[in-house]
Design a protein around this nucleic acid. Structure first.
Lengths: 373, 373
DNA sequence: TGGTGATGTGAATCCCCCC
DNA sequence: AGGGGGGATTCACATCACC
């Protein structure tokens, strides 16, 4: 029975920090469902380059024409894409997300299939190459981009990881856009054999750094079904994540293992240097705790910024405004006629000098004085 | 017989410089085959907005929920897309090309269908908006792009128009890339009724300038099956091309006719085109890029010139000094007790020999090695 | 007339925990 | 799985009121 064979073949434990040798259509079914936090996939591009391309100086341009990158027709490519994406969706946790990178030759087919399979696109990210190859014929616009699709498992899936604050920090304090200006993988980073490119589409580590830092946490499991020379695994290791790589060409596996050997795993002592936790992750402080702890006395008068709204703190930490009672958030929303309002930012109290102080300052003080940071 | 009716209905002469009232699925079949030089299509995106979205200042975001953007499911959308694209392909000359603009909500479906119908993609052009709406919840990357697909009728089609030199001139003498930095349609250019936007998705004329100038010649026929308020027709007229517009909402037709009345035929000369803004991405290098690219490893120690101040590089490119965190500039200023300080000049790292090297040297190396000079 | 600060707004698939 | 409640979250411009 096929199902029994399949059960037997499934890994009892996740093969963490390993490169699995074989075709991803054979290996992925052996991974358990709902076990992976993040998938990065750089599938074949189906470029269908037929004629050779020559530079103006009569030297040939080396294109992508590896054997693994040829499909007979769209149907074959779509079938292959549907199969590996389906398996990826199965092994992904409901909190997990998937990245796929491609060019205009394949990404439109891939994106459509992703949507059909139920993936819910979060962003299409444009990798704008700072040093792209020129268009030698002058027949089109210079193609300077590849596209990454970032998606969660389904529209309903909740709890995916997005390190908003870390991305903002990387971008000099402004929220990171879906356009990334990054150079191609060149120079010493580019793996070479006898002076020639070891892999025709090796991705830069900086690209994977941003992908993995943005959408996973230390200790998460990062799966790459088309590992190639191992860029995603190397960066995952650097950033204190676990990796699982799948690759069917033993030559690439050898190169990836060499790179991994030279990559230190981010040590525990470095974990604290990874990223600043977001405000959302800060321990919650209920307004009632401030009242209980005496930071605000029962009966204290709270004001809106313009002193137009005046409310009183009750012993049960609800506010009384007019004849109405509710939480700091509910009364603020009510007073402003809005569906919701952050009470921590809305309310102020008066200090001895009659100055208005935000109650959010009190919350910060409470956190600081009670080891809640 | 349907075929007879169809034949009878076809326009004897092309309805040049007219706006045709009706659904493009009804009107397109009346146009003769192989008659159009250039098609620009801005179809519904099928945005699928569900809940209300509020800005941090508690005002609502006005989303697109027009009747014309609602489809029951992907199948309906695909069917609609297949039908109008098929007709577009029929009416296109073999030397003609087609542009379609969309967002990640629809462009992957559209692109896949285009390929299936036989269109051959020449470029995917990224419209990188210079002033996009932020992501208010900090839940994703800020979505700053729309995508235009530019395609010829078939792989074999020869002789399409690409004004390579004009594009090069527009781009300060360098090859025009497939990434266009252009602002949204705002201000006086935006059509308004009673102070409110007349159309929820009006495109900027500058975008259509590039499209029409790049891929057509004076006297060519430009067809727009989703004319809206007429941006493509207006720009075609200004550039000395003929237009044919199709629109099913009479209110939009009225607005478009008003704009056309105020537009001179061929009212643009070369000099005016040459001063069209062509902002290039600034070759700025953020400190974070050095960290991402591995020029500085996470945990690297940075020193002030006199080694008095010692800080650590975090994964999100902030520095940690004492218990404080901030950008290279902020921490330098803090450590020196100054209001501001240039971190690029302040910080040094140690090389293998214990020599202090300025991080500004690293920045210069990054620029040199990645074509950013 | 000119500068300054407040206000408005753009194709938006925009939270998460707990009951 | 659906509802309720806490509470976190914005960038580049254009316009306009006001001094």
């Amino acid at each position: 029975m096929a199902s029994v064979k399949r059960e037997e073949a499934i890994f009892a434990d996740l093969p963490l920090n390993q490169i699995l040798f074989g075709d991803c259509l054979d290996i992925l079914p052996k991974l358990p469902s709902h076990s992976i936090d993040l998938i990065f996939a750089d599938p074949p591009y189906n470029l269908q380059l037929q004629k050779e391309l020559w530079r103006p100086n009569q030297t040939p341009v080396v294109g992508v024409d590896d054997e693994w990158d040829r499909f007979a027709n769209f149907e074959d490519y779509d079938d292959f894409t549907t199969r590996w994406l389906s398996e990826c969706r199965r092994v992904l946790k409901t909190t997990g997300t998937l990245w796929v990178i491609g060019s205009y030759h394949n990404i439109y087919r891939v994106g459509k299939i992703m949507m059909d399979l139920g993936f819910w696109i979060l962003n299409d990210v444009i990798w704008h190459k700072t040093n792209p190859m020129p268009n030698f014929r002058g027949a089109r616009f210079q193609n300077a981009t590849e596209i990454l699709l970032w998606a969660k498992r389904s529209r309903e899936a909740r709890g995916y990881t997005f390190q908003y604050q870390a991305m903002k920090n990387l971008n000099e304090g402004k929220q990171m856009q879906n356009v990334w200006h990054l150079p191609l993988c060149t120079g010493a980073e580019r793996m070479k054999i006898d002076g020639k490119k070891a892999h025709s589409t090796q991705k830069p580590e900086a690209l994977l750094y941003r992908v993995i830092l943005a959408s996973s946490k230390p200790g998460d499991v990062v799966l790459d079904p088309f590992l190639g020379t191992g860029t995603s695994a190397v960066v995952a290791k650097r950033l204190g994540r676990h990796f699982i790589g799948i690759e069917r060409d033993p030559r690439y596996i050898g190169l990836a293992q060499e790179r991994l050997k030279n990559t230190p795993f981010c040590g525990v002592d470095e974990r604290e240097l990874l990223i600043t936790p977001s405000k959302r992750a800060a321990p919650r402080v209920a307004f009632g705790q401030l009242v209980e702890a005496g930071y605000l006395k029962v009966g204290t008068v709270l004001y809106s910024r313009d002193r137009r709204i005046v409310a009183y703190v009750k012993a049960d930490s609800l506010l009384r405004w007019d004849s109405k009672e509710g939480s700091i958030h509910q009364i603020a929303a009510l007073a402003e006629g809005k569906p919701a309002c952050n009470g921590w930012e809305y309310w102020y109290y008066e200090d001895e000098d009659g100055q208005l102080i935000s109650i959010d300052v009190l919350r910060a003080r409470y956190r600081a004085e009670n080891g809640l940071e």
